[in-house]
Computed example of a mutant assay.
Amino acid sequence: MMDAAVAERNLTLVNRDAVRDKTLRRFLIGDRVFKTITQVSAVTVLALLAGVIAALVHGSLPAWRAFGLDFLITEKWNPVTEKFGALAPIYGTIVTSTIAMVIGVPISLGIAIFLTEICPERLKRTIGTAIELLAGIPSIIYGIWGLFVFAPWFQSHVQPFLIDTFADVPVLNQLFAGPPYGIGMLTAGLILAIMVLPFITSITREVFDTVPPVLKEAAYGIGCTRWEVLRRVVIPFTRVGIIGGVMLGLGRALGETMAVTFVIGNAHKIFPSILAPGTTISAAIANEFTEATGDLYTASLIALGLILFFITFVVLAAARLMLMRLARQEGR
């Protein structure tokens, strides 16, 4: 009887070990498959990125051979004489994106702070949903609304006021000079600010919600005001996420095409006034790529795409360096 019991126990242990070994092998195979899939995905992304860069460089070579680095500092853009320069689109891209971020970032942060710290519970869902719906509106709808609704109102009410108000102020009288066209770089910047607002607001709101309540309660407990809690607790705790949201909005502003094309005026000129028409890299490519008949014309447009890629890369790299610096400071 004892021998049978021992034999049965040994058999049970053997079966258990076999099941465990089989399970471990299955897990090991699954881990290897998962690791291989992730590695292939990462390499595929890098390969696609390298392919995009190679295609842009190869396609833009005729323009670089013809104009050299003068392409970057030349304003003239004449398809008839095949004289091209990227300075005006670069200038327009930087100016409109700057306007969008200067206006959109404070408003987005204010909305996120209101929703997380001040807004009554019954209104949070409604306002939050409305903000998120703005992100789902196609850019061409923003462009049509900007051209037929916002630009006429802006031309009639806002631009004359800006021109008259700053007429006697040095520097600003140049920045807000000229006839009220309605369309222009300021109009495009305002439309971009509306477009980037839901992205920055949503991300900032989410990171604000990650702040542990005990930190805010402790700050209130020692007598801090709501503003002091936001400035000394919430914002320092979430600044990495805030910067990430701002960079996402800036990327959207730099690459936006259709909405800007409708309202910027599409003029390859550099004017000191932000009320004047202009163009951006993406708008120039969208407007003229189908009309580019010569090889040099096409290569110049592709070179604009390469420049936009480089600008975006520099912006993201700068944001990454900033985040790394903040992480080192937190470590100290």
Rank of each mutant, 00 (worst) to 15 (best):
L197I: 07
L197H: 09
P198I: 15
P198Y: 14
P198W: 15
P198H: 15
F199G: 10
I200V: 15
I200H: 08
S202C: 10
S202E: 14
S202H: 14
S202G: 14
I203D: 03
I203A: 08
R205H: 08
E206Y: 10
E206K: 11
V207D: 00
V207N: 04
F208I: 14
D209C: 06
T210Y: 01
V211L: 10
V211Q: 13
P213F: 05
P213K: 11
P213T: 13
V214H: 08
K216D: 12
E217P: 02
A218I: 07
A219W: 02
A219R: 01
Y220V: 02
G221V: 06
I222A: 03
I222Y: 06
C224I: 03
R226M: 06
R226V: 08
W227I: 12
W227G: 01
E228N: 04
E228Y: 03
V229T: 15
V229H: 11
L230Y: 14
R231F: 11
V233E: 06
V234R: 05
I235E: 12
P236M: 07
P236D: 08
P236I: 09
P236H: 07
F237G: 05
F237R: 15
R239L: 13
R239P: 05
V240C: 01
V240Y: 07
V240I: 11
G241R: 08
G241N: 05
G241D: 10
I242M: 14
I243A: 11
I243W: 04
I243T: 11
V246A: 14
M247T: 15
L248K: 08
G249K: 03
G249A: 07
L250Q: 01
L250R: 03
R252E: 01
R252Q: 09
R252Y: 12
A253P: 00
A253C: 04
L254D: 12
G255R: 00
E256A: 02
E256R: 00
T257R: 00
M258F: 02
T261K: 08
F262G: 02
F262P: 04
V263N: 00
G265K: 08
G265W: 12
N266I: 04
A267R: 05
A267T: 14
A267W: 06
H268P: 04
H268W: 09
H268L: 07
K269G: 06
I270F: 02
I270A: 05
F271D: 09
P272L: 00
P272D: 01
L275T: 04
L275H: 08
A276W: 02
A276K: 06
A276V: 01
A276Q: 12
G278L: 00
G278H: 08
G278S: 10
T279I: 08
